[in-house]
Amino acid sequence: MSQAQGEIYDLGYQHYDGPRGGRMQAVRSLWVNSFRTTVGLGRGARAKILPVLMSLVVIAPPAVFLVLAAVVGSGKLSHADFYEATSILLLLFAAIIAPELLIPDRRNGVTTLYLVRPLTAFDYVAARWSAFLTVALLVTLFGQVLVLIGNSLAAEQAREFLQENWIDIPRFILAGVIITAFVTTIPMAVAAFTERRAYAAAFVIAVFVITTPMSGLLTTEWCERSVTFAVESGEIVEEAGPEECRRITGDYAKWFVLLDVGRAPTHISDMVFEDDTPDDASILVAELPPAVPIAWYGLLVIGPGALLLWRYWSMKI
């Protein structure tokens, strides 16, 4: 550094007299930085692979549907079903990308630099969280728009179809927020407690992947026909009674359906869409008062969210 020092001196140091924004400016800047980090901007080609791949994973199913609808001109995919099908993919997206916003900062010690600037731990977490939520929401809504286009292409009169079904647009936006808030908060909370990004992702995915078959088995329906025997003109005749079905865990089954945590947000989105194409899980959930799945969803978002904030609030720098 010695060779050019004389010149450096000559340019002199200039104090800054311009405007200074406060906390809002700090949060906004952090939000923009988080958004860029999420999509891999300004960080070389390799950093873009995962965000692009993950977005494709989420968007591929409706894109395929759209192509089929345009070419074959048939088929209908409901917006609610799209969320049911892709919520696990969205979660995968979040589990892999969201920890990127918290863990490297802690590993590299950058968190300290943020916390000595005019923002609080709460601001920091809020900026990171909401930036990721925005990216996830954009990807989701893009998928829903593809579904909408596909459906209107498959309909006989596209314009008429849209006029009849415009209500689905605010619905899928609301449901999108519900689902992305869920898939954003949980991986971020896990990422607040581990030093390696990959483990945060693996843990979240493991929990979601294995609770699905667990809940499936706990709510399995067993059907039996009772058989009665009668003697008819000297011969023994079997008579099949009515089929009797019961759940493997009896009356508890409707509670165990909640164990499938991946479905927690889609139960709520089904309510938003007033979805009436029930599958096994939604039949069972319907047996519960509607407040229960809503409370369960709330618990799964607010609980991890509170843990996340607490962790950063009480962090030893």
Binding site: A206, I210, P213, M214, G216, L217, R246, I248, T249
Partner: peptide, 28 residues
């Protein structure tokens, strides 16, 4: 499931499908 005592489990059908394939081979 045993503790709840509502049904007897056997190594067949849904049990194999959900536990062996779903949980173990597909997840754990």
């Amino acid at each position: 499931i045993r503790a709840l005592g509502e049904a007897e489990l056997a190594f067949e059908g849904e049990v194999i499908d959900l536990i062996i394939d779903g949980m173990v081979i597909g997840g754990i």
